[in-house]
């Protein structure tokens, strides 16, 4: 498994919390960025505004997670340095959140898959042995509850709506499904984090996620894909998609072009 430069010589237990926080922060950052791409071009003003609210919540969450990440390793970098000066291989987000938005339906289906994980996950994290993590999770949990309500309702409406919308949602489902499995893969970091009471194993979220997803997909008249194949490589940083590089090239352009400048 690949590790980033700074963690190469360290043991899992030394870097696990930092890596864990990066995973939380990078998911929120990359997904928040993707949603922000919709601002101004949504299908209706009301939807445009709603999506921006979710994006703002996620960017706020990213800031909190990344700030606590730098606090954890006691290094001189800031949350912004982490967001704007790391290369793709140092990002620890799920592949699910970095793939392109596609149409509005695909964007909301991705959001739904993520929210359906985040809700039980953040709920569990709010009981974390690490007080800072518990506090962030408690705040993010409230936001995620509304995100899930909204994304689930949209997925149901678009799956059930018209012939055309149903087809589009079926295609989005086929595309996104193989990216959902990565959420539940435990690795050495997760095992360590679980052993010290910071968070449960991601795999333990499977059941709750299945329940939410099955219920929503059936209301949306969408058939849950049979395949259990899962892409991976985002959470570990071993192999991101090609898309993340483009996303970062855009997001980081000013910080990279004018080293040392403040904004």
């Amino acid at each position: 498994m690949a590790t980033s430069g700074i963690t190469r010589s360290a043991t899992v237990s030394e870097t696990a919390v930092f890596e864990f926080l990066l995973r939380q922060g990078d998911n929120a950052l990359v997904l928040g960025h993707r949603l922000s791409e919709w601002c101004g071009v949504g299908p209706a003003l009301e939807e445009d505004i709603a999506l921006a609210n979710t994006a703002l919540d996620l960017i706020g969450q990213a800031k909190m997670w990344l700030e606590s990440a730098v606090g954890e390793i006691d290094d001189s970098r800031s949350a912004n340095d982490l967001a704007y000066l790391r290369d793709a291989w140092d990002f620890r987000n799920l592949l699910l959140v970095e793939v392109p938005n596609g149409d509005f339906g695909q964007t909301l289906l991705r959001e739904f898959f993520f929210d359906a994980f985040q809700l039980p996950w953040l709920n569990a994290l709010s009981q974390s042995s690490n007080q800072r993590i518990a506090d962030i999770a408690a705040k993010a949990f409230k936001e995620a509850s509304y995100h899930l309500e909204r994304s689930a309702e949209t997925v149901i409406a678009l799956g059930d709506g018209t012939e055309q919308s149903h087809q589009r949602m079926s295609r989005a489902l086929d595309y996104l499904w193989p990216y959902t499995g990565e959420m539940f893969v435990d690795d050495a970091i997760d095992t360590h984090i679980e052993s010290v009471g910071i968070a449960p194993l991601p795999s333990s979220m499977r059941q709750a996620w299945n329940q939410t997803v099955d219920s929503v997909l059936s209301q949306a008249q969408l058939a849950r894909p049979q395949s259990t194949f899962a892409h991976s490589g985002g959470r570990t940083g071993f192999r991101h998609t090609e898309h993340l590089g483009h996303l970062l090239a855009q997001m980081q352009v000013l910080q990279r072009s004018y080293p040392g400048a403040t904004w």
Partner: peptide, 14 residues
Amino acid sequence: NDGAWVREARMAHA
């Protein structure tokens, strides 16, 4: 235009 299907589908669902 890209949002037309969304608006129609939401209405149809309601």
